[in-house]
Design a protein around this nucleic acid. Structure first.
Lengths: 148, 148
DNA sequence: ACTATTTACATTGATATCAATAGAAATTGG
DNA sequence: CCAATTTCTATTGATATCAATGTAAATAGT
């Protein structure tokens, strides 16, 4: 039988203070709440806003590249599209040239919702500039980009 | 009737390139996958690792402060504890002095699992140092801390 | 002491996330 | 052209996340 294991409290403090994964998850939850609250009046979450914005293109993209852009699993994208399709904001059609592919596009209603969300995004995002230590958001973005 | 709305493609590019919320969510998903993959052999996800590590204290904490530390909703913590209790890794007991409070503590089995996870965390976290542009992880942490 | 308020946590319902798996269509190797 | 492989997406099951709401215990005001 093995003896009882004790993890030093100092290890706990080390992980709590230095773990980048934990710090990013914390920030992700906090920012998600911030944008979810702000976007609630137009009926979007932060993820739905990002997803729909990524579909605003000259040519409707297939699912794979969209999932890659959002750094999410393809199955997550499939699930995330469901409520947007149900509300009539996103269309999913089959590519005639390659019947495996689904082409994603915004409906006129979807574009209207997204357009209403843009000014909310602008003001919410601008409020973040004041929060960052020295206002250098670009530096933070570059660091995050290196991780995704 | 309102005319069809068109969001300029330049707005899409602006949001895609500058939205801090999107960038953090992307990094959060990527880091979650990285740590989930690494920790899978011991049966933990990144979130379960962070949660259990935060419970490794001299005195069992109640739920509120733990939720605050992890920057998560209290209801999320309630749900996250369920699978850990079921596996016998975390104990939830009532505080005799204040019967509203639940005290969270690791079981010996939980400590053993956590101890097995620590070296995995160390090597995985060390691998991130090489990924960051100039290796300044502390700067990134400070920026993230300002958001959470 | 008694009532109103506050605090701490749980439950429900909806969406988000990914692993494992499966299916269908396209591509490749022969 | 055909079989094997690869590509693209969907489904299932488990956990994660939060809003809205409910409940019980503690505290405050009187």
């Amino acid at each position: 039988m093995s003896n009882a294991v004790e993890i030093p409290f100092s290890t706990t403090l080390l992980v709590r203070d230095t773990c980048l994964c934990l710090h990013v998850q914390r920030a992700a939850r906090a920012l998600a709440r911030l944008f979810d609250d702000a976007l609630r009046p137009v009926g979007l979450t932060n993820g739905q806003f990002s997803l729909m914005m990524s579909l605003n293109r000259p040519e409707p993209p297939p699912m794979g590249p969209v999932a890659t852009l959002l750094a999410m699993d393809q199955t997550t994208l499939t699930a995330a599209l469901k409520p947007l399709q149900r509300r009539g904001w996103v269309n999913v059609t089959q590519n005639a040239k390659d019947k495996r592919r689904r082409l994603l596009s915004l409906t006129p209603e979807g574009k209207a919702v997204l357009a209403a969300a843009v000014p909310i995004w602008e003001t919410t995002h601008a409020s973040l500039e004041e929060v960052l230590p020295d206002g250098d958001m670009g530096r933070l973005r570059r660091d995050l980009q290196a991780l995704a």
